[in-house]
Design a protein around this nucleic acid. Structure first.
Length: 353
DNA sequence: AAAACGGGGGC
DNA sequence: GCCCCAGTTTT
């Protein structure tokens, strides 16, 4: 694909704008590769405003790569609680331990070694190399594809995996060798502030003169993106099991899959147990005698690909329940997904708080 | 190549 | 309700 814009002028316009207009964000305080790395992982599929408080807390709790490598896994997961995509932080800790082991606790500055780390894909690799090490590597995310699809009038489907390579090649031709960091960050910042998905602010755009889509008046219809996955619905019983000491039961989710290793109130799919058999199921599974069974307000939780309809039941039992029992005010010490934080709120409301 | 993987926010 | 978001891993 032939690039027809004035490349030196484009670089200057973009970088000058970024120098003047960039937001003051905590991970821009310095170029510490570890902090850049943490920020890039947090920012995957996640808005800046959401990330800011998490980043501040996380880097306070785990200030260095070595600190994160040595930290307790559950504490790390707890620090990520509510951010979502929890495999990101489990992979991150796996990767920093690898860096301590193989690279003397220094974040690699080469494509190969950096890209082989767990959770570091093509985007994150390029972001770290350019922002922390000022190397002219592409860092193509959704912003960059949107911005460049408009400027260069690229009409490939950005939902396709191989389309990213087209944009990487374009960045390789466009990128400033003097300041690759600001060039890449400028593209992303432009996508976040000006060249937005809907109603882009073209009148304020520092590179409007270079934009083919704007010249043709088609910026609103770019980028092209197919893909819409149909999402499933799952119905579950969610069990708040209380013993005579007023402790409640928590269980840990499996090591892999959805919300891996997070803690929750025991849950069972309605495909496995019917409401009429619920009491028998509880009695056998948790080895208690049920003396009270109340239905509370249901909780609905929407993921990107699944909707959980959770019928919440409060169960009073006698005996020694098979499972972790702890006082209600201590469950927050365990990393729990937002869905079950909603359940916890139901209980507290029911208890009159 | 497509699906899995969270959560929040804009309209 | 639908779409978006500073993506990577698994199938």
């Amino acid at each position: 694909m032939a690039i027809t814009i004035n490349i030196p002028q484009f670089r200057k316009d973009l970088i000058d704008w970024f120098e003047k207009e960039q937001r003051n964000l905590p991970w821009r305080k310095n170029q510490d590769p570890y902090r850049v790395w943490v920020s890039e992982i947090m920012l995957q599929q996640t808005k800046v405003d959401t990330v800011i408080p998490y980043f501040n807390q996380f880097t306070k709790s785990f200030p260095t790569l070595s600190a994160l490598a040595e930290a307790d896994e559950q504490e790390v997961l707890k620090a990520w609680e509510g951010l979502g995509y929890y495999s990101r932080v489990r992979n991150l800790q796996t990767a920093v331990r690898e860096v301590v082991e193989n690279y003397d606790a220094k974040v690699p500055d080469e494509v190969e070694s950096l890209g082989n780390l767990k959770g570091v894909g093509p985007y994150t690799r390029g972001a770290i190399l350019s922002i922390a090490y000022n190397k002219p590597e592409p860092a193509v995310d959704g912003n960059v594809m949107r911005v460049l699809s408009r400027i260069l009038l690229i009409e490939e489907d950005i939902a396709k995996a191989k389309t990213r390579k087209i944009f990487e090649q374009a960045v390789r031709e466009l990128i400033s060798k003097e300041n690759p960091s600001y060039f890449n960050q400028g593209l992303m910042e432009l996508g976040a502030l000006i060249c937005t998905p809907r109603k882009p602010s073209c009148m304020l755009c520092p590179v409007q003169d270079h934009c083919t889509a704007f010249a043709k008046g088609v910026e609103q219809s770019l980028p092209i993106k197919s893909k819409k996955t149909k999402q499933k619905i799952e119905d579950h019983f969610t069990l708040v099991i209380e013993d005579d000491a007023e402790k409640v039961m928590l269980e840990q989710r499996p090591d892999t899959g959805l919300l891996a290793q997070m803690w929750q109130f025991p849950m069972v799919s309605k495909k496995e147990v019917s409401e009429s058999l619920l009491q028998t199921y509880i009695k056998e599974k948790f080895e208690i005698d049920v003396i009270q069974l109340e239905k509370l307000k249901p909780v609905k939780h929407v993921f990107s690909h699944i909707t959980w309809n959770m019928d919440v039941w409060r169960i009073k039992g006698v005996g020694q329940p098979k499972g972790l029992m702890l006082p209600l005010d201590e469950v927050t010490q365990y990393p729990m997904p937002v869905s079950h934080q909603k359940v916890l709120s139901q209980i507290q409301e029911y208890n009159g708080n």
